[in-house]
Amino acid sequence: MQINWKTNTNQTPYLFRQQAEWAGVKVHRARVLPGRMLEHTPAFHEINITISGKLTTVKSSASGKRVITKAGAENLCLTPAGQPVSAFWDDTLDNMGILLDPDFVVQTAIENRFASKFELIEVYKDKDLLIQQIGLALLAEAGAENPSGKLYIESLTQTFVLHLLKNYSTANSSAENLSGGLSGYKLRRAKEFIVENLEEDLSLAEIAAAADLSQYHFARAFRKSTGSTPQQYLMQQRIERAKELLAKDDLPIVEISLRTGFKNQSHFTTLFRKFTKLTPRTWRELKLA
């Protein structure tokens, strides 16, 4: 995120900074000294959440009118791409920003049967806990020693964008009613695809394509049909495959971890113990005793 910061004391502005980026989405969190953000016209849709401190935002509307808003803790500010904005703060500020590529938002809308032409609505709202939680979850995933993978990130970003489309845009959805979940054939194809590719870093798009559905509709229908999210089901199947391999007593645990899609043996051991309450080595010893 390239923004011209200037502090009131001309010191280095950042006391703390974390950034992450995926296809179509950028997330950052920063704790900065008192200062201001010079006016800029963002190419991305900007969503800012004030974690602590007070932020005053100045926006210029299409008619040239200046709109001034003041944000306290957990306040949300949404600035659509192309709208000039500046800001200032008199005390140390802890702020989280999420930037969305407009093309990514449009693509997500079309895939999920929203109108292809819409506008995000400029918003100043006291709180939106879902947006804040997803932003923090994305940052936590970026800093994780053993990240959960593409499927988890895509699930978070899909939920985030669709929440914006439903609550902060002019878009209308013509989505079909999925109250019945997936058909038997589509569910079987999705499950088969997951099991056949356990060692891969699967994406939500790949699994949804196997069932011939959009990502969002697939995720919702899959959960209604199975009681689990695609990410949870994938992890369950990896653990079951690992149990099968552990029971054979002829493969090193490190190789089993790689064959079942885990980043390394440490990651495998942590999640195996979470599901079974035992380490892979202990489980194998008890199974073969």
Score class of each variant (00 low, 15 high):
residue 98 I to Y: 08
residue 263 K to L: 02
residue 187 L to T: 08
residue 15 L to I: 08
residue 265 Q to D: 15
residue 285 E to T: 14
residue 208 A to N: 06
residue 66 R to T: 12
residue 6 K to C: 06
residue 152 Y to K: 03
residue 211 A to L: 01
residue 109 A to P: 01
residue 205 A to Q: 10
residue 282 T to E: 15
residue 94 D to L: 02
residue 75 N to Q: 11
residue 118 F to A: 10
residue 96 M to H: 01
residue 68 I to L: 12
residue 276 T to N: 15
residue 130 L to R: 00
residue 225 S to C: 09
residue 31 R to V: 11
residue 119 E to Q: 13
residue 194 I to A: 07
residue 171 A to P: 01
residue 16 F to K: 12
residue 163 H to E: 06
residue 37 M to G: 05
residue 222 F to S: 05
residue 289 A to H: 07
residue 5 W to P: 08
residue 264 N to Q: 01
residue 231 Q to E: 14
residue 16 F to Y: 12
residue 74 E to K: 11
residue 155 S to V: 05
residue 181 G to S: 09
residue 275 F to G: 04
residue 272 F to A: 04
residue 272 F to H: 05
residue 72 G to E: 14
residue 264 N to D: 14
residue 285 E to A: 14
residue 60 S to K: 15
residue 135 G to M: 01
residue 91 D to C: 09
residue 203 S to K: 10
residue 42 P to A: 13
residue 278 L to D: 09
residue 225 S to V: 12
residue 197 N to W: 04
residue 271 L to H: 10
residue 269 T to N: 14
residue 22 W to D: 03
residue 226 T to A: 06
residue 177 N to Q: 01
residue 259 R to N: 09
residue 212 D to N: 13
residue 234 L to A: 02
residue 32 V to D: 02
residue 226 T to R: 06
residue 74 E to F: 06
residue 232 Q to W: 03
residue 270 T to K: 07
residue 163 H to V: 03
residue 115 A to P: 02
residue 174 S to D: 12
residue 238 R to P: 03
residue 270 T to S: 11
residue 276 T to V: 03
residue 106 V to E: 10
residue 162 L to K: 08
residue 44 F to M: 09
residue 188 R to D: 15
residue 245 L to C: 08
residue 258 L to F: 11
residue 193 F to E: 09
residue 231 Q to S: 10
residue 75 N to P: 00
residue 37 M to K: 02
residue 215 Q to H: 00
residue 133 Q to K: 11
residue 180 G to T: 09
residue 277 K to D: 14
residue 130 L to I: 09
residue 248 K to Q: 15
residue 53 G to E: 10
residue 23 A to N: 15
